[in-house]
């Protein structure tokens, strides 16, 4: 039968596809663990920062820091969007972008300008098609993002915020819950939401070198950097998890496809043999 050769070719091609997807699946599975380790390693820093800032906030500063002061009027909001560099990770990025677009529309209805800072190549590709202002971008962070690579982008938004060009700043990324589930997280970064810590029992204060104001600024900047860095790591872990799941289902689909094709092939082959036999038998009958 003429179709059988085509089917064999098809089976081969799907088998190759399955090889690729299952390899990607295994690569992602091992990278998740690494990403989680990175997440774990960066936690103590953020925790310590939070402690110190909590204390600084209690230290009765004469002028509240611009980062902690709520602004009455919101004219422009910023979004830090953390997406992946590579695709093939299911609906991870698209889910986030869809939610973001909803947010953007809400702001636009209130005549509030929206500006973004993007991390990751997929975000750049997405925002290229949109008429949304992009003030800074970082790409190609790789499997081991470094805080260094993010400093530039973060400085752009923080400077904008200090200069009142931005009145609010949000952070948007995929939170890693476990391997099977990730959730889009859009949270307010600035002004810092007031923390609900219990009052310190006995009052004591640090010695400051130099002034508390200057130190608070340093602490807050680094704190925000660490929050964004942490978000980048969570997003990375989410990316690998989502890719692993997507590639697993792609491999399963490929296996089903191969089974179906093989069935078709066998039937076609059997039909050809049957036909041949009946032709031979028919021929023999005609001769005798």
């Amino acid at each position: 039968m003429s179709g059988s050769k085509e089917i064999v070719g098809k089976i081969k091609s799907v088998q190759n596809t399955r090889k690729v997807t299952s390899a990607l699946e295994m690569v992602s599975a091992s990278k998740i663990r690494k990403a989680q380790e990175l997440m774990q390693a960066s936690r103590p820093y953020a925790r310590m920062m939070r402690q110190v800032i909590g204390h600084l906030a209690h230290a009765n500063l004469e002028n509240p820091h611009p980062f902690t002061e709520a602004r009455d009027e919101v004219k422009r909001v910023g979004y830090i969007v953390i997406a992946t560099d590579r695709g093939l990770c299911g609906g991870l990025n698209n889910n986030m972008f869809r939610q973001l677009l909803g947010e953007f529309r809400r702001w636009q209805e209130q005549d509030v300008e929206v500006t973004t800072v993007i991390v990751g190549r997929k975000a750049a590709q997405f925002f290229r098609r949109l008429k949304v202002d992009v003030s800074a971008s970082t790409q190609d962070l790789g499997d081991q993002p470094r805080l260094e690579d993010l400093i530039g982008s973060i400085k752009v938004v923080l400077d904008d915020f200090r200069a009142h060009r931005l009145d609010r700043l949000h952070l948007c990324y995929n939170r890693f819950i476990n391997t099977m589930s990730q959730s889009v997280s859009i949270e307010q970064l600035l002004p810092l939401p007031p923390s609900e810590e219990e009052e310190l029992k006995q009052y004591w204060d640090y010695l400051y070198e130099p002034s508390p104001e200057a130190l608070l600024d340093d602490f807050l900047t680094r704190y925000i950097e660490s929050v964004i860095y942490q978000a980048t790591l969570e997003n990375l872990a989410s990316e690998h998890a989502a890719r692993m799941v997507a590639m697993k289902s792609a491999s399963d689909n490929a296996s089903n496809l191969i089974d179906d094709l093989r069935l078709v092939y066998n039937k076609a082959r059997q039909a050809a043999i049957t036909q041949e036999i009946s032709e031979i038998v028919g021929g023999a009958a005609a001769v005798s």
Binding site: V117, V134, A136, S137, G152, K155
Partner: peptide
């Protein structure tokens, strides 16, 4: 910061 802007 400048680099990030350019990249954008």
């Amino acid at each position: 910061a400048l680099k990030a802007k350019e990249e954008a």
